[in-house]
Simulated scan of single mutants.
Amino acid sequence: MSSFRTIELSDPNFENSGLRFLTVKTPNLKGRGDICLYVPNVIDSITDLPIYILLHGVYGSAWVWAMKGGAHVTAKQLMESGKIRPAIIAMPSDGLWGDGSGYLAHQSQDFAQWIVTDVPKAIRENISCTSEKSKVCIGGLSMGGYGALKLGAEFPEVFSAISAHSAITKFSEMSFFVEEALESYQLCDAENDVIDVIKRNLKDLPAIRFDCGKSDELIAGNRLIHQQLDSFGIAHSYEEFEGGHQWAYWQKHVESSFRFFDGKVY
């Protein structure tokens, strides 16, 4: 029996490039949520492929990691060359609140639980090569990097690894991008900076890596988180590369997320 009142899964006869689309209705969103999936071809007996969740940034939705970032193309190339082992690439929407939900729990909708609970459950119930044994990793860019770091640190029992690109690290940095006043988020939890969550879970964190472009307006916050993690003695990987807050950067560096996840779940 399904955990969701309604489900729509794309028809394989009309899918392309290994991409599938799944829509479920959930109380956490008080409506429907979309998930774009890359599902590799594997033998029927495989039922525990890991799930790598990629969170998008502001203005986007479930399609952008694939249709602007080519994440499924990169994943397929890495899998076919043997550089990473097969995995499901899950690219959910953020819930489509305003310019970006922040993947946070607002008073009326819980965009965090949509990602943490609903997305893995929907995939396990509808994609046959996954099961309760499927390990889950979380990554993302910009607002999605913020979501990955925050949710990964907050729910270490769910996620095996975290990878972020060009991440927002303080909730106040959302104001750089969104039209909505930050007060309109009506947050249930007042401490929503990445470091706040990490400090609450210092002894139980997933594996962490993150990177940022040297020309990115968010570089200062990423450097600060790196310094803070060092000061707490938390093992992590942080890298800086040439580039700014743009798709050309994320298209190139999403490979680092896939390689990192592969090394943590197999």
Rank of each mutant, 00 (worst) to 15 (best):
Q227Y: 09
S172P: 06
S231E: 13
G152R: 04
K170L: 11
Q228K: 12
E179F: 08
L54F: 02
I88H: 04
I208N: 02
A161C: 01
R259F: 03
I208T: 05
L229P: 04
Q109P: 00
F171R: 10
E15T: 05
L78M: 07
S134E: 08
E240V: 02
H236Q: 05
V116M: 05
R20P: 02
S134K: 09
C36F: 05
S142H: 02
I7Y: 02
D94W: 01
Y266I: 09
V136S: 03
P206E: 06
D34G: 11
R32S: 14
G144Y: 08
E255C: 10
Q107K: 15
S17N: 15
Y38F: 15
T130E: 00
D204N: 15
K68W: 11
H226S: 15
T6Q: 10
H165R: 08
Y59R: 14
H106P: 10
S131A: 03
V158P: 00
T26G: 05
V73A: 13
F155Y: 15
F258S: 01
V42K: 08
W250Y: 10
E242C: 07
G243M: 09
C129K: 12
V42T: 13
Y185H: 10
E217G: 09
T74E: 14
K121I: 07
C212V: 12
S231W: 07
A122N: 03
K150I: 06
W114L: 07
M1L: 06
L9K: 14
L229D: 00
T130H: 00
L149I: 00
S166P: 09
C129E: 10
I51Q: 01
M1P: 05
N16K: 15
L141F: 09
S160Y: 06
Q251G: 12
T74W: 01
A75Y: 02
Q77S: 14
G95S: 11
G102D: 06
V64D: 15
W247C: 09
G82E: 03
Q227I: 03
E217W: 07
G18Q: 06
A87Y: 03
H253F: 11
L19K: 10
M79W: 01
G98D: 02
D110R: 07
S175C: 10
D189P: 03
G244N: 14
H236L: 08
E80D: 14
K252Y: 12
I219N: 08
L141C: 07
R200P: 01
G70S: 12
F241K: 13
C188W: 00
A167V: 00
N201Q: 05
D230L: 14
L104Q: 11
E179Q: 15
V58L: 11
S10Q: 00
T26A: 00
M174T: 09
F258R: 06
L229V: 06
N201W: 01
A71Y: 02
M67F: 14
S184V: 00
H106T: 13
S93N: 14
Q228P: 03
A122V: 02
I127C: 06
Q77V: 04
A181V: 01
A190I: 02
G98H: 07
K203Y: 12
